[in-house]
Amino acid sequence: KYFGTAKARYDFCARDRSELSLKEGDIIKILNKKGQQGWWRGEIYGRVGWFPANYVEEDYS
């Protein structure tokens, strides 16, 4: 189950295995919004990890 999707506004390079690298334009499935302050958990291309919420724009459609 996921909470919708978000589109990456910027590139983000994961610093460890718990984080999710993003490329601008990627569409991420949002799995959890209750991580550390400002971090969401998501899935993209079969990978799961945490990413900074301010790097994405949530899709409300």
Score class of each variant (00 low, 15 high):
Tyr60Ala: 12
Gln36Thr: 12
Arg41Pro: 04
Glu58Ile: 07
Asp16Lys: 10
Ser21Met: 08
Gly25Gln: 00
Leu31Thr: 11
Trp40Leu: 08
Trp40Ser: 02
Asn32Ala: 13
Gln37Ile: 08
Ala8Val: 13
Gly4Gln: 11
Glu19Lys: 01
Ser18Cys: 07
Ser61Leu: 12
Gly46Arg: 04
Gly25Arg: 04
Lys1Leu: 10
Lys7Val: 11
Ser21Val: 01
Ile30Val: 14
Lys7Ala: 06
Tyr45His: 15
Asn32Leu: 08
Ser61Thr: 13
Trp39Met: 13
Trp50Lys: 05
Leu20Lys: 03
Tyr10Asn: 07
Ile30Pro: 02
Ala14Asn: 03
Ala6Tyr: 09
Lys23Val: 10
Ser21Glu: 13
Ile44Cys: 14
Tyr10Phe: 14
Pro52Ala: 01
Gln37Glu: 14
Trp39Ala: 04
Gly46Leu: 04
Cys13Asp: 08
Lys33Arg: 12
Thr5Phe: 15
Tyr2Cys: 09
Asn54Ala: 14
Ala14Leu: 00
Asp11Tyr: 06
Lys34Gly: 13
Gln37Met: 12
Glu19Arg: 00
Leu31Tyr: 10
Lys23Cys: 09
Lys23His: 11
Asn54Arg: 15
Lys23Gln: 09
Gly38His: 06
Glu43Asp: 05
Ala14Arg: 05
Ser21Ile: 07
Arg47Ile: 03
Lys1Val: 09
Ala53Ser: 12
Lys33His: 03
Ile28Gly: 01
Lys7Ser: 07
Leu22Arg: 02
Ala53Gly: 06
Val56Ser: 01
Arg47Ala: 08
Ala14Ser: 09
Gly49Leu: 00
Asp11Glu: 11
Ile28Asp: 00
Val56Pro: 03
Asp16Ile: 02
Gly25Pro: 04
Lys23Tyr: 09
Lys29Gly: 08
Lys23Gly: 02
Arg47Ser: 08
Gln36Met: 15
Arg17Ser: 15
Lys29Phe: 05
Phe12Arg: 07
Lys1Gly: 09
Ile44Arg: 11
Gln36Gly: 10
Arg9Val: 11
Glu57Trp: 05
Ala8Glu: 03
Val48Arg: 12
Val48Gln: 15
Arg15Pro: 01
Leu20Gly: 01
Asn54Gly: 13
Asn54Pro: 08
Lys1Asp: 06
Leu22Val: 07
Asn32Asp: 15
Ile30Trp: 01
Gly42Trp: 00
Phe12Val: 02
Gln37Asp: 14
Leu31Gln: 05
Arg17Leu: 14
Tyr2His: 11
Tyr55Asn: 09
Ile44Phe: 09
Ser61Glu: 09
Asn54Leu: 09
Ser18Glu: 08
Tyr55Thr: 10
Tyr60Pro: 10
Gln36Pro: 15
Asp16Tyr: 06
Glu43Gln: 13
Pro52Asn: 03
Ile30Phe: 02
Ala8His: 04
Glu58Ala: 10
Ile27Phe: 06
Glu58Gly: 07
Asn32Ile: 07
Ala6Lys: 03
